[in-house]
Design a protein around this nucleic acid. Structure first.
Lengths: 342, 342
DNA sequence: ATGAAAAGTGGTAGCGCTACCATGACGTTA
DNA sequence: TAACGTCATGGTAGCGCTACCACTTTTCAT
């Protein structure tokens, strides 16, 4: 006599239980759940009530195994705590929370190697889609993305050569707009302060440089950067360094808002007038920039919207209608505020 | 003739391929991967090289189905963007990234109902452990946690009645310490400003109240709260409200650092001297509080450490040795800074 | 030397679900 | 009326892995 393996599932109802209760075949239950339109009204109702009575919830693992496709979105970001990426993840999460898809989060710690490793781990899971931050994947990562067999969305930036799809904006243009604004406001010795110079920061710097060179104002001594992770504390220190190096500094374009905030606080502490003596521009436009005193000019980026749009595009691609526009530029907006109003 | 279903997996090697190549049974490969100690040195080496040659990576879905246990940690937090929870998640992530465990993230949006829904969705996945923020689960959620059949760690707070394990600290004591510090510093009309009054904030408020009552200083008019989500902007507005209500206000204990920052900026804007005219205390001690000008006194909490410890406890429980100490209090530290130094 | 336990290995039978094909009941067209 | 499609449903055979047992070989105490 064959003893069935003691229901390892702890007695959770299976699709067979539902089928028995509803008096139909298991496959019909499966269909009723996934494509209700293909099952007759009658059976659908019977199945629904059986599902409710038993409290049946499909086992995602069995489903993934049988269909060779997990209802999972793989999401790779360089940091979990950086508010910018947290907002992207929130956008992804909110767009996914109605549907059946789960999120599998990966933190690359700004490392291409770690990204490769994570992609390797994600692969066997057969995710329904992959969303990765950035466009500077290593060749190996790129190959993994190309052969993943699912929609891929690169987010945060736009570029010319998407693996599949892209949603973001031009960091170069953002940096350029920031610098041009400072130039237009009458500042001349405009510094660039940046921490954790990832590829996006590099492109902001390039944009700054382009604007400065166009105005004949570029001077390499005006640039102060470090590979160290960004923080408000670091912003303050870098600003001190910059000022020591170039006492004539009259404005700074900061890599991001944390750095800008550090600069602002240091100005307060050292009684440096903002925007009179020093103009400040940040990047990303966190909530607090508007409330700061003086309020800080910043380049507004649409992180949450990027997350949402990435999911929308991936979902469309899963349904078979890949958007004809593979690269979506959500742009940015320079928010002019008191810190540069002189 | 039976045609095998066209390798849906896209031709990825399976455990059978490895077994064939190594000249052993599939089950031995499985064992070599999961419990290397139970396989002889020789076979282990052969299997390892077969694995490397083929680039074999086990399918987590098949594994989960067969073993009725997914290598997944379910993590429920009320917010993805609130830095406090982002740090907890980071701690969890970092502690898990060496091992085989993935993270399944759930955002409850501070809603008990949403928490219930998520727990319902997580259940069928048979997670290896569940980490949930807070100790105020609904009765239904509590039951779901109790019957989840895996280790459960409640984080961020400590309480008397853990579902299984707990890591956190006492928000009541934190609030009390903050208020006592202000009283000791000589402030008398000490307000409480709070947004999004979740249970943790309520307990901080209770701690504040206890300290104020003990000193004979409590006055309900000193408390200004709102259920609206917290932000720096909101901090500024609530502070204005509080000041309009009680012009004699001489200090505020803020629900969290965002609010405190809003207060600080408003003080700058309205030329209110800090700490002379108004003392400010925040909660959580974000990086920037130390750099702010004036630097802001805050209650330091160990979010990252909470995440790490939660994982350590869960992992131990999975291994079968549940720590004898079910409730771990990681405490807090009041960081005294310029904003209350008068 | 002998029995018994321990260690190492493999076969079989699922885990819960869905892809694939088969079936039968209906139209629908020529 | 025959031939053919379409629709609704079900049966069967796996997806890739591991639990459970069985079997052999080794080790060890007596």
């Amino acid at each position: 006599m064959i003893k069935p393996r003691s229901r390892r599932g702890g007695g959770r109802p299976t699709i067979a239980d539902v089928a028995r209760k509803a008096g139909v075949g298991a496959i019909t239950v499966s269909r009723a759940l996934r494509e209700p339109g293909r099952v007759s009204e009658d059976l659908r109702r019977q199945i629904e009530s059986a599902v409710n009575e038993l409290g049946y919830v499909p086992d995602p693992n069995a489903r993934a195994l049988a269909s060779a496709r997990a209802e999972v979105f793989g999401v790779l970001v360089p940091s979990l705590t950086n508010n910018v990426f947290a907002e992207v993840v929130r956008g992804i999460y909110d767009s996914l929370s109605d549907g059946p898809f789960r999120i599998q989060l990966g933190n690359t710690h700004y490392s291409g190697l770690e990204e490769e490793r994570l992609l390797q781990v994600f692969g066997p899971q057969r995710p329904a889609a992959l969303i990765v931050a950035g466009i500077d994947q290593t060749p190996a990562s790129r190959k993994l993305l190309e052969t993943a067999g699912c929609p891929v969305v690169q987010v945060m930036e736009t570029g010319l050569d998407p693996v599949d799809m892209m949603v973001g904006f031009s960091h170069f243009q953002g940096g350029k707009a920031a610098a041009e604004h400072l130039i237009e406001a009458g500042y001349r010795r405009i510094g660039f302060i940046g921490a954790r110079m990832d590829p996006r920061s590099q492109r902001r710097l390039a944009g700054y440089r382009a604007a400065m060179e166009a105005a004949g104002l570029f001077d390499p001594r005006l640039t102060t950067t470090t590979p160290v992770p960004s923080s408000v504390t670091l912003g303050r220190e870098l600003f001190r360094d910059a000022l020591a190096k170039v006492p004539s500094l009259d404005a700074v374009f900061c890599n991001n808002d944390d750095i800008a905030l550090g600069v602002l606080f240091e100005c307060h502490r050292a009684s440096i007038a903002v925007p009179k003596t020093i103009g400040i521009v940040g990047f990303n436009d966190l909530d607090m920039m508007e409330v700061a005193f003086p309020s800080v000019t910043s380049v507004r980026t649409y992180r949450y919207e990027i997350g949402r749009r990435a999911v929308a595009m991936a979902l469309a691609a899963i349904e078979g209608n890949r958007p004809e526009q593979r690269v979506v530029d959500l742009g940015f907006e320079l928010k002019r505020r008191e810190s540069t109003a002189r």
